[in-house]
Design a protein around this nucleic acid. Structure first.
Ligand SMILES: Nc1ncnc2c1ncn2[C@@H]1O[C@H](COP(=O)(O)OP(=O)(O)OP(=O)(O)O)[C@@H](O)[C@H]1O
Length: 743
DNA sequence: CTGGAACTACCAGGG
DNA sequence: GTAGTTCCAG
């Protein structure tokens, strides 16, 4: 099949066909950078490059999977063999092969943020550093920053100046020592350890340099120092490296990303070619005009002129509301209206916010309006208590040196509390052994009391049993076996609450996830499963095929596009967020974030701010964001439409003494704001509940609608709940449920 | 040692 | 408003 480059404009085509030598593509928002990368991969493969020889680094696992699929479609050849994924997952995989060189084994554990923080706390206790005077989270953050900057503990202990820094240096050193001892790496290590490996063993570096003849990096503006070093080292032999990025969309400085990498590329690769993509295909003229106007305020940026052939389109609407609740209600209503008038699907809408805490209010309004929605982010599936409990047993089976997992399992075991755990930790520390090893040999240890020995036996028997069986039985048998034997099911069953029910559902979901992993993975080992679940990002789980409104942070929305976008909470101290106000660089990053948010929209954009908002459970008064005040008169006139609070939003409230006065009332506004269209609105409310639709009910779990009776507000549905195995008649206006799948 | 009540820190974002 | 931690009775 011949690749058709007609789907590219001339700038894109040039960037695609330039495959040899270093190449930097500066691509404005919506200018088709994903398309260029996809075609470049396809072009390489068509020219006979083996997928094995290509290393393609993406920002999310989801992006990698989608790109593989598209390359396969374009070429008709299997793109699955390309080394494609996030930096973290690619180098985690590479480390599995080479870990023994740097003192780890191939079954090393990956510590997530929680594990790392717990380890910091443990180190602080051990070093007798008070967690009251020094915030463990702050220390952990400081350590992570140092690691991103490639500063070693030994270097830092010389540099550390004030009391805090000195404590950080102490903790950092011990933290690294314990990670090594536990055969564990944190997220930062996944990038740093390969660098260490490559510097210490040039022959290994050469091996990978030879393998990766072509290297592509997406979202280059958000790579950190370690990531840049990695691609620089790996590309040294062939210098066939393409990086694609947009300095205006750099939004991860806070976790170590360095825009400087864009400028360094020019100096480090003097022969580099530079391509610019400046035609935007995504958005209307008005949306783009606003975006350009916003980003203009930033000083530090590469000159580029983004333009479009698209129509000017509808004006961007800026909406002022009285409260956060009102903001949410207006959005819900707007979605209803748009769907009715324009034949849009729920999935055409995205609601974006600066902080995750804002999602609750928005969710409530959508719920009350009967609009199906998906929230990206929040508590991750694999972070849930019941799931993490199970995972920790699995982690010990793979890596018995994993002290964090062992500590958690100890905490779960009946009869073992603080005192016993402290005792075991102390023995482990004194003898330099892992905690599990102390447990394993406890029978013959005179320091351990008989009662404790008895309680430890259960842990030993489960872990040892599955350690032996691990390579003989299938992955799902192993996981199901562990779940059965640790008694977690019966514990939740006996609780008999909604919460326990949900936890049981989650455990079932874990089993399905294991089964799915086994079916779709070449080597479905426990190690690989654990690695994969450590590295899933929130956005990876987002399924754009589901017909639901998407709620997410602006950070998560990077790289995506939606016909209709709502950007919420344009208020001082929220967007821009409070921490960014004192510092010009942070402020510029906030502005870039606003730019990213605006440029997600294809057809229609709504931006809202509210005068009052619940924060930390109390009402607080909010001030309109400076980002809105900065918009130029020209754009305000030509591309923007403003909707202020009007008198009709004010509702009469009975005062105790004197008659009626106009003031805002949080509970009444909902009714008043909708009063005109309320009947029709209510009629629509349950229109999604139709025969065959799959729903999820808060107490009864998932089910399928068999029949619908009644009208309007009295509508009832007969639903078969498969978890309970019963059919129930539900009065919809009281039901707490939502549609999970339309048919 | 356990479980629930009381208290407190939090909400800037994430692999 | 919520999640995580601490405290205390049983
Ligand atoms: N040559 C082209 N002709 C028509 N449409 C195009 C062309 N190139 C890209 N597009 C469309 O433009 C839109 C944006 O493309 P893409 O998602 O690749 O942008 P991007 O550069 O990754 O944007 P961002 O950096 O903002 O995430 C997509 O809908 C894509 O299909």
């Amino acid at each position: 099949m011949a690749l058709n480059l007609k789907d590219l404009n001339s700038a894109q085509r040039e960037a695609v066909t330039e495959i040899e030598g270093p190449c930097m593509i500066i691509a404005g928002a919506g200018s088709g950078k994903t398309r260029v990368l996809t075609y470049k991969l396809a072009y390489l493969i068509e020219r006979g490059v083996s997928p094995y020889e290509i290393l393609s680094l993406t920002f999310t696992n989801k992006a990698a999977n989608e790109m593989k699929e598209r390359v396969t479609n374009l070429t008709g050849l299997d793109a699955n063999r390309i080394w494609m994924g996030t930096f973290h997952s690619i180098f985690a995989r590479l480390l599995r092969f080479e870990a023994d060189r740097i003192g780890f084994t191939r079954s090393y554990s990956i510590y997530d943020t929680n594990d790392s923080l717990n380890l910091v706390k443990r180190v602080m206790t051990e070093l007798e550093i008070s967690t009251e005077s020094f915030n463990p989270a702050a220390i952990h953050g400081a350590i992570s920053k140092l690691k991103n900057k490639l500063i070693l503990p030994s270097e830092y202990s010389i540099k550390a100046y004030n009391a805090f820094e000195k404590k950080v240096a102490e903790v950092y050193h011990e933290y690294q020592r314990l990670l090594l001892k536990s055969n564990a790496m944190d997220f930062d290590d996944l990038l740093i350890k390969p660098l260490e490996l490559f510097s210490r063993y040039p022959e290994i570096l050469i091996k990978y340099q030879k393998r990766f003849k072509f290297i592509l990096v997406d979202e280059y503006q958000d790579t950190n120092r370690a990531q840049y070093q990695l691609v620089k080292m790996l590309s040294q032999m062939y210098e066939n490296i393409s990086v694609v990025g947009d300095d205006a969309q750099s939004i991860y400085k806070w976790r170590g990303a360095e825009i400087q990498n864009i400028f360094d590329f020019e100096t480090d690769f003097p022969h580099r070619k530079i391509f610019r993509l400046e035609q935007n295909y995504r958005s209307t003229g008005s949306i783009l005009a606003l975006a350009g106007d916003v980003i203009k305020k930033n000083r530090r940026q590469i000159e580029k002129e983004l333009w479009t052939d698209n129509k000017k389109g509808d004006k961007v609407k800026i909406i002022e509301t009285l409260t956060d609740k009102d903001e949410a209600n207006k959005i819900a209503r707007q979605i209803r209206d748009e769907i009715k008038n324009k034949k849009l699907k729920f999935s055409d809408f995205a609601i974006l916010y600066r902080t995750n805490a804002q999602s609750r209010t928005l969710e409530e309004s959508l719920w009350n309006s009967g609009i199906p929605y998906i929230i990206v982010g929040g508590t991750r599936f694999y972070q849930r208590k019941e799931i993490k409990d199970i995972i920790c047993y699995l982690k010990i089976i793979v890596n018995p040196n994993d002290d964090e997992a062992t500590l958690r399992v100890l905490g779960l075991t009946d009869g073992i509390g603080k005192t016993s755990i402290e005792k075991l930790v102390l023995i482990a520390r004194d003898t330099g052994r892992s905690i599990y090893d102390v447990i394993y040999t406890s029978e013959t240890n005179p320091e351990i009391k008989t009662a404790l020995k008895k309680n430890l036996r259960e842990i030993i028997s489960i872990i040892e049993k599955y350690k032996t069986l691990k390579n003989e039985i299938r992955l799902s048998e192993l996981v199901n076996g562990v779940i059965d034997e640790i008694g977690i099911i019966s514990r939740y069953k006996s609780e008999n609450t909604n919460e326990a029910e949900e936890r049981l559902n989650n455990i079932e979901e874990l089993k399905s996830a294991v089964a799915e992993f086994s079916d779709n993975t070449e080597e479905p080992t426990l190690e690989n499963f654990l690695e994969q679940i450590s590295l899933v990002a929130d956005i990876d789980e987002f399924d754009s095929r589901k017909n639901a409104v998407t709620l997410m942070t602006i950070h998560s929305s990077k790289g995506l596009e939606f016909p209709v976008v709502f950007i919420t909470g344009l208020e001082e101290n929220l967007f821009p967020v409070s921490g960014s106000i004192a510092n010009e660089e942070d402020m510029e990053e906030e502005r870039r974030l606003f730019y990213v948010a605006i440029t997600r929209a294809q057809k229609k954009l709504f931006i809202s701010y509210s005068n009052q908002r619940y924060r930390f459970g109390v009402q607080s008064y909010q001030v309109k964001s400076r980002f809105l005040k900065e918009i130029s008169d020209k754009v305000l006139k030509e591309n923007v439409e403003i909707e202020k609070i009007s008198l009709k939003d004010l509702v009469p409230v009975r005062q105790k003494k004197s008659g009626i006065s106009y003031e805002y009332d949080n509970t009444a506004i909902k009714y008043n704001g909708y009063s005109k269209s309320l009947p029709e609105f209510e009629d629509d409310k349950f229109s999604d509940i139709k025969k065959g639709v799959k729903i999820n009910h808060e107490s009864f779990g998932s089910g399928q609608v068999l029949a619908v009776t009644g009208k309007g507000i009295d509508k009832k549905a007969e639903i078969y709940f498969k978890d309970l195995g019963v059919i129930k008649k539900i009065i919809l206006k009281y039901a707490k449920m939502r549609v999970i799948q339309n048919n």
